Amino acid sequence: MTNWDVLIVGAGQAGCAAAWDLAAAGLRVAVISRPLSRGKPCAGGVTEKAVARYRFSIAPVVREAVTSLAVSHPSSPVRHLSTATPFCVMTERAELDAFCCGQAEQQGAVFHETGGLRGIEQRADYVRIETREGAVFSAPWLIAADGANSAVARLLGERHPAGAMAIEGCVPRENVRDYPPMTLDFGVIRGGYGWLFPKGDHVNVGLYVWRHGVAAPERSTLQRYCRARLGAEAEQVAGYPLGTWLPHTRLANGRVLFVGDAAGCTEVLLGEGIYGAVLSGQLAAQAILGERPDVLYPRALAGWREELQQVSRLGALFYGVLPVSSRLLQGRLGSTLVNGFSQGLTLGQCKRQWRGAQSLKL
Rank of each mutant, 00 (worst) to 15 (best):
V46W: 00
T85V: 09
C88I: 06
R55S: 09
S57I: 01
I58C: 00
V89L: 10
S82R: 10
S82A: 05
L81N: 10
Y54R: 01
H73E: 02
S82G: 03
K49I: 07
T47W: 04
E64C: 02
F56C: 09
R79P: 10
V89A: 14
E48D: 06
S57A: 05
A52M: 04
V46H: 14
S82F: 05
K49M: 14
A84I: 04
Y54G: 02
A59K: 07
S72D: 00
P77L: 09
S76G: 14
C88G: 04
V66K: 13
T67Y: 01
S75M: 10
I58L: 00
F87M: 03
L81A: 14
S76L: 07
V71A: 06
H80P: 00
H80K: 07
S68N: 06
P74H: 10
G44V: 13
F56R: 11
R79L: 05
V61F: 00
H80N: 09
S57Q: 00
L69C: 11
V78K: 14
C88V: 06
P74A: 10
V62Y: 07
V51Q: 15
A70F: 12
R63F: 04
G45C: 12
E64N: 08
T85M: 11
T47E: 07
P60D: 02
A50R: 11
T83A: 15
K49P: 01
V61P: 01
T67L: 03
T67M: 02
L69I: 12
A52D: 07
P77M: 09
